[in-house]
């Protein structure tokens, strides 16, 4: 029982992280129909931005976080403007491949600049965990969970409660109609990609200090993000959030009670199962895309 409680707490903490990873990707995927293979690289970028701000520049931890987020926003806007805008009319394979190329460049560039040795980012939180009965959890993880939920809520409000969000939703439904109704679709695409990138970067900045920072850290994160998106359905923020928690629970309980070797397979097995039952994801709100 104690073990189960600990697993549940772990999954809740991990789920927030996964949700944050997923929502950035689901936005870009859903609205732009771009398989964003720079998602992992942007996650890594955020972690290194955090490292530079907090360690090299010596900024306060809580100041460095928004710096990394804004850096991700800027890089995302730049990537969209330079690489995706000229290819607006191309199909999903071409843009995906361009994103793969950009991902390779970003990752190799990181390796070249920083080397392969992992970096640690110190946190202002105590190393001693919070212990409640049989369960214990570190303060930094609780902070990350809170920050992730706050960012998810902020994104949700942006999409559902602002003018920009309305335009984004209109573009998601039908970009031609949106354009006819006076929406600046190019601007929406740039904004979408920038927001998605900022979320990936923020995830990296929050998790870099929890884990360690190294050039390949984004690879596994990207795979998880893809799994979360399919669980939640394309373009759905709440779907991605719930998808993140489902994945975290599946992994925790799978590793705890089935086999740790198959921990990373749990998410994918769920995906395959979901597609057998409900091919558009658990929480799809739109028709099939593609």
């Amino acid at each position: 029982m104690d073990q189960l409680l600990q697993h549940v707490v772990n999954a809740l903490v991990l789920g927030g992280t996964y949700a944050l990873l997923g929502i950035g990707l689901t936005l870009i995927f859903g609205i732009m129909n771009v398989v964003n293979f720079t998602h992992g690289a942007l996650y890594t970028f955020g972690a290194y931005a955090m490292y530079l701000a907090a360690v090299a520049l010596g900024l306060n931890f809580f100041v460095a976080l928004p710096v990394a987020l804004v850096a991700g926003l800027a890089l995302g806007a730049l990537l969209e403007f330079v690489l995706l805008r000229p290819l607006r009319r191309s199909d999903i394979d071409t843009t995906m491949l361009v994103m793969i190329g950009a991902g390779i460049i970003l990752q190799s560039g990181t390796l070249w600049i920083f080397g392969g040795v992992a970096k640690a980012v110190p946190t202002p939180f105590p190393a001693e965990p919070l212990v409640i009965g049989p369960v214990s959890v570190s303060y930094v993880r609780l902070f990350v969970l809170a920050a992730a939920l706050a960012l998810i809520a902020l994104t949700y409000v942006t999409i559902n409660g602002t003018k920009l969000g309305r335009a984004m939703r209109a573009t998601f439904q039908d970009h031609d109609t949106a354009a006819l109704m006076g929406v600046n679709v190019s601007l929406i695409y740039t904004a979408t990609f920038a927001i998605g990138s900022a979320l990936a970067s923020a995830a990296g900045a929050l998790l870099g200090p929890v884990y360690v920072v190294f050039p390949q850290m984004g690879d596994l994160a990207a795979v998880k993000a893809f799994a979360i998106v399919i669980l939640g359905g394309l373009g759905s923020i709440s779907g991605a959030t719930i998808g993140g928690f489902i994945l975290a629970f599946a992994e925790e309980l799978g590793a705890g009670y089935i086999s740790s070797g198959y921990r990373d397979a749990m998410g994918f097995l769920i995906i395959i199962a979901v597609l057998l039952v409900k091919p558009t994801g658990l929480f799809a709100r739109a028709e099939r895309i593609g």
Binding site: F226, V229, D264, I272, R288
Partner: peptide
């Protein structure tokens, strides 16, 4: 499924086989 969903199903399949 088609499109992006198909992309992700195939990635999932390859990962499961690898594991």
């Amino acid at each position: 499924v088609r499109g992006a969903y198909f992309v992700i199903v195939t990635i999932s399949f390859a990962e499961v086989v690898r594991l």
